[in-house]
Design a protein around this nucleic acid. Sequence first.
DNA 1: AAATACTTAACTATTTTTGTCAAGTATTTT
DNA 2: AAAATACTTGACAAAAATAGTTAAGTATTT
Lengths: 149, 149
Amino acid sequence: MLRLSTKGQYGVRAMYEIARGYPDEPVNIKSISRRQDVSIHYLEQILNRLRRAGLIKSVKGPGGGYLLTRPPEEISIAEILEELEGPFALTSCLNPEEGCVRVDRCVTHLLWKSLGWQIESFLRTVTLDDLLKGFKPLDYQTLLKRARV
Amino acid sequence: MLRLSTKGQYGVRAMYEIARGYPDEPVNIKSISRRQDVSIHYLEQILNRLRRAGLIKSVKGPGGGYLLTRPPEEISIAEILEELEGPFALTSCLNPEEGCVRVDRCVTHLLWKSLGWQIESFLRTVTLDDLLKGFKPLDYQTLLKRARV
DNA sequence: AAATACTTAACTATTTTTGTCAAGTATTTT
DNA sequence: AAAATACTTGACAAAAATAGTTAAGTATTT
Ligand code: FES
Ligand code: FES
């Protein structure tokens, strides 16, 4: 239930590899593909979107690859996922572009909205730098402390 | 991103209607369909699963319908969603039946696992009784207080 | 000129979602 | 017994989303 698509998962893992080269060592697609076991062609599609969104930039030619445009501690997981999968809206009713006529008399609307907030808030507190440092949230209490900030 | 299927959404809303008849007034499918704007045939499919799971029971014949098998305050949203959409596993790697060979060297595995825990924990604290009483989580702080229990 | 590496668009197979349809079975009331 | 109400089950199917692949480029450095 509530599955994260492979596009989002691969995107975060690719960003982790690119973050390892920060600030000046471009990481090429082939090595990301090798280290993360994701097809080169699929990665091309994913990295293109992240580049157009301004999260990474590309360096062409031999020795080229991808580089972060900002320090790893300034790029959150939420930001990456948002670019690849759209806004945090658990239901179509919550999507501003779709909306819902039942909103006012719906008993579950606020529930989904709140859960969405909670998910988004947590993912905004986790950055690429956390992943680089081997961030390992061990228990629920630790998570709450982070989220409470 | 991270969408909840209509089956899960409709399931919770149907359970809310059935909860309104607790403990002794069976609620028939037709009235659930009318009040929640969901097709009768689709509801049949959903309620069947919830009945087989033991969350509700059916009463046949005229005046029949569905009844909760336990008090509304003992049935959490998490339980309903689990029956309709399977376990809280954000990625296939987290699903016990699927698994993943990369788990040990994966930089994101614990992240998705933690987020899954957080979502599940929150939904276990919200019950049908909360919905009946018009539970309206107003802000993130309120949510955290509930989750912290 | 050659090698490396990114860029873009179009296409497609598979799976999941979101239902519908049809033919029952069970129970109560008259 | 008959009629009405209401649940039960399984099969089917359209539509959308997911998860990629294919092909033909362009740009840069050595
Ligand atoms: S049905 Fe749209 S807000 Fe609940
Ligand atoms: S790829 Fe399976 S655990 Fe991360």
